Simulated scan of single mutants.
Amino acid sequence: MELIVLWDIDHTLIENAGVSKEIYAAAFSSLAGREPSAPARTEGRTDRLIMRDMFLRAGLTVPDWPVIEDALTRAGQERLGDLRMRGTVLPGVHEALKTASTRSDWVSSVLTGNIAANARVKLSAFGLDALLDLSVGAYGADAGLRPELVAVARERVQRLRGVPADVPAVLVGDTPRDVEAALATGCAIVAVATGIHSREELVAAGAHEVLPDLTDTSRVFSILESFAGHGKRPRTSFDRPQRR
């Protein structure tokens, strides 16, 4: 049965070892002319919100988004080597993505708060980019709120891959924001306790399934296949991408 699987990146597929916050700090410094007073607040938020928050906390005017995105892109490219040296792929990820990529009736892509350029940097650092259909993913430049990214990904999957609108989708992520995005948009959710949030926190957020990590490939795909059989999803207020 057809299924759309949308994977989060940081702390779900990879551990970035602090490189992400260094990217935000470098982008901020290049635009503000000084270092940020505090690290970026991330935890499942989109790059649009993360960078906006950094400027507002510093009491500065928020630059136009294209200017911020260019700064983030440069900062990400400059830290590819650091990510390869210090970061790691999380347990079971290669096997999970490879298995998903062999399913001809599935679309396996990403739903991430990262801008597309930096998502590619993070995935290519560990050879994961070839295992995902990144052209139909949803990224941090596409919307401010994570639930809105679901509609963006669905529209791309329908337009570029010809997948019907009623094909079920499942998000795989490590934060309550991933869970909230799934529940708000009629998607299923597989939460993994590989980030800073415990199993208990993810269950409390409403996760359908919570795994310690992705090492048990058979278990992961048993869960995903069970969602593929759910048929049509309920419509929600996030079915249409928000105009900006």
Rank of each mutant, 00 (worst) to 15 (best):
138 A>P: 07
138 A>R: 06
139 Y>R: 15
139 Y>G: 04
139 Y>W: 11
139 Y>V: 04
140 G>K: 14
140 G>L: 03
140 G>M: 04
140 G>P: 03
141 A>G: 14
141 A>N: 14
141 A>V: 05
141 A>T: 15
142 D>M: 07
142 D>Y: 09
142 D>P: 12
143 A>H: 13
143 A>K: 00
143 A>M: 07
143 A>N: 13
144 G>R: 14
144 G>C: 06
144 G>E: 13
144 G>D: 12
144 G>F: 08
144 G>S: 13
145 L>T: 12
145 L>S: 07
145 L>G: 02
146 R>T: 01
146 R>M: 01
146 R>H: 13
146 R>L: 00
146 R>F: 02
146 R>E: 01
146 R>P: 00
148 E>G: 05
148 E>Y: 11
148 E>F: 02
148 E>L: 06
149 L>M: 06
149 L>K: 11
149 L>P: 12
149 L>A: 11
149 L>T: 10
150 V>L: 03
150 V>H: 00
150 V>S: 03
150 V>R: 03
151 A>H: 07
151 A>M: 02
151 A>F: 07
152 V>M: 05
152 V>I: 15
152 V>A: 05
152 V>R: 14
152 V>K: 15
153 A>M: 02
153 A>I: 07
153 A>R: 14
153 A>W: 11
154 R>E: 06
154 R>A: 00
154 R>M: 01
155 E>S: 12
155 E>W: 09
155 E>Y: 03
156 R>N: 08
156 R>F: 07
156 R>C: 09
157 V>H: 00
157 V>P: 05
157 V>E: 05
158 Q>F: 07
158 Q>H: 12
159 R>Y: 12
160 L>P: 00
160 L>M: 14
161 R>M: 02
162 G>A: 04
162 G>F: 04
163 V>N: 10
163 V>L: 11
164 P>E: 13
164 P>W: 04
164 P>K: 06
164 P>G: 09
164 P>Q: 13
164 P>N: 14
164 P>R: 15
165 A>I: 14
165 A>D: 10
165 A>V: 12
165 A>F: 11
166 D>G: 09
166 D>I: 06
166 D>E: 15
166 D>S: 06
166 D>V: 05
167 V>P: 14
167 V>Y: 07
167 V>M: 04
167 V>C: 00
168 P>W: 12
168 P>E: 10
169 A>K: 07
169 A>H: 13
169 A>R: 15
